[in-house]
Amino acid sequence: MHAIETENLTKDYALGFWRKRPYRALDRLTLQVSPGEVFGFLGPNGAGKTTTLKLLMQLVFPTAGRAEILDRPVGDVEVRRRIGYLPENPYFYDHLTAEELLRYYGRLFGLDRATRRQRAGELLDEVGLGAERRLALRRYSKGMLQRVGLAQALLNRPQVVFLDEPMSGLDPIGRRMVRDLILRLRDRGTTVFFSSHILSDAEALCSRVAILAGGRLVSSGRLTDMLAFEVKGWDLVVDGLSADALTGLGPGLIRTTTIAEGRYALELPADARPDEWMARCTALGGRVVSLNPLRETLEDFFVRQVGAHHRRTEPGSNN
């Protein structure tokens, strides 16, 4: 069983007023997400992430291909009892309070009055809006609306949650809250499928990711398989070294960056012995501030993959 499965999912939009010309927003996307996974759906703006989510929610209809959620076609309205969805930059009814909104959505799920009341209270507390539950939504900031959006996506205790840019509009505390929420969902066995272009979030949360560019899947798999986790080098920050002392450190440095007067970031090769370099710095009167191994990040991988895709699809390229 797959939590989410797409096969050659394709979406063309017609652009233009008189002379319609097709624009392919998503091109033959084939993807499987297993139950209980936190799956990151990554890509630059305009890559087709939101289109994919809209196709999965049947807000738009595919030009070709198929999609299933929990082994049911996405068009099956009953499957929506078991899923939650946070759209990108969600908008709600101005005239309602957050509590009224959640109760209204609870009625759409067919929840009884007591459950609606209980879930609305629990979720608004969980997303940090307990104190503002009776405030009209027209008075909410963008970040607060994002939190309401998260709450409504979880109202029915869904088995699969779709989050379109869940960190959008949130301050650092809000982002931490969302990260913790996703991890709690994962611990409860909920499948989380979230789109983002904030790679550090994906790196911290996801077991698997897919990278989309120009409507095409350019890479997908486990983070551990995608990224080389061996050390590529070392980043040593020292303080209190004079420029003369710096030259006395000897050969072997890949790069030296001046951070402030007397403070430098030294990039060492992978085979360097960092303990020896620290001892050398200390002997020359310096003080070690930090030492960090350099590994490939998801950002490095992402930039490489998306860059390669753009080069392939540029006019004049062979592909």
Partner: peptide, 13 residues
Amino acid sequence: RRSVYNVLSKPVR
């Protein structure tokens, strides 16, 4: 205003 996205992602035809 896209509030329809929230409604139609619920079991509403």
